[in-house]
Amino acid sequence: MLNYNGFQTEQANKFAKVISLMLEGAVTRSLTYKNCQPLQDVSDCIPLLLKK
């Protein structure tokens, strides 16, 4: 989907990996601390990463 929004395929793949890692970390922290704030923080950051 990212490559349809003006990102080159290589750049889109890098963003996909970064977002996936951010989400994995946020899920781990949320489960560990029983707090959903890490997930909210990631959801707030994703649009900032994808701005052109």
Rank of each mutant, 00 (worst) to 15 (best):
N3D: 08
P47N: 00
K17G: 03
Q11K: 07
N5W: 06
L31W: 00
G6R: 03
L23E: 15
S20M: 10
L23P: 11
N3E: 09
S30P: 12
F15H: 07
A12F: 03
K34Y: 10
N5P: 01
A16R: 14
I19Y: 01
Y33M: 14
T32A: 11
L48A: 05
A26S: 05
Q8E: 05
V18Q: 05
L31A: 05
T28I: 10
K51D: 01
D41Y: 09
G25N: 09
L48K: 09
T28S: 12
V27G: 01
A16S: 13
Q40C: 02
N3T: 07
N35C: 13
S20E: 14
N5Q: 09
C45G: 11
L2M: 07
K34T: 13
N5Y: 03
V42Q: 00
V27T: 04
C45F: 11
K14N: 13
L39Y: 02
P47W: 00
I46E: 00
S30L: 06
Q40I: 04
T28E: 11
L39D: 01
Q40V: 09
E24L: 07
L49V: 05
A26L: 03
L21F: 06
L21N: 11
V18S: 01
L2V: 06
Y33P: 11
S20G: 13
A12I: 11
T9Y: 07
K14H: 12
T28H: 10
P38L: 10
F15M: 09
K52D: 12
Q37S: 14
Q8R: 06
N35L: 11
L39N: 01
L49A: 02
M22K: 15
E24N: 03
K51Q: 05
A26C: 04
N13K: 14
S20N: 13
F7A: 02
G25D: 09
M1T: 11
L2T: 08
L21M: 05
L21V: 07
A16Q: 12
F15W: 06
I46P: 01
A16D: 10
Q11H: 04
L21W: 04
G25C: 06
K51I: 02
R29T: 07
N3C: 06
A16V: 12
I19N: 05
M1D: 12
L39R: 02
A26D: 05
